[in-house]
């Protein structure tokens, strides 16, 4: 049996990679993928704790997170398609219509 904190450390590493991706990239879809990576890191944490405490609730949270991630992907990609049709790019710096 692999100890729980191994999974937690892996999850932390993946989450950090996701954070770096969001902070340093300009391509909207890459940023979005980094967010998905962070969401998955959190899922891993949920499952690790679920096994540590033998609680099914953690699994159900992961279930919900997956459903919400699907919804998020649909809406997010629709936003990027719209952005592309208005600006011909998905560079997030170009999405400055509400910029003051």
């Amino acid at each position: 049996m692999i100890p729980t904190h191994y999974f937690l450390i892996l999850s932390a590493i993946l989450f950090t990679i996701g954070v770096v991706g969001v902070l340093t990239r300009k391509n909207g879809i890459t940023i979005f993928m980094s967010i998905e990576l962070m969401v998955n890191a959190v899922n891993l944490t949920f499952l690790a704790y679920a096994r540590q405490f033998h609680q099914v609730h953690g699994l159900i949270f992961v279930f919900f997170i997956m459903a919400i991630a699907a919804a998020e992907a649909a809406v997010g990609l629709a936003i990027f398609i719209t952005l592309f049709h208005h600006r011909d790019t998905i560079d997030v710096d170009e999405a400055n219509l509400m910029h003051w």
């Binding site: 904190h5 932390a12 590493i13 950090t16 340093t24």
Partner: peptide, 17 residues
Amino acid sequence: GYTSGAAFGLGLLYYIV
């Protein structure tokens, strides 16, 4: 981005360990 990300990650790892 890289420095704050790395700092965040190191902090996270520190607290987990």
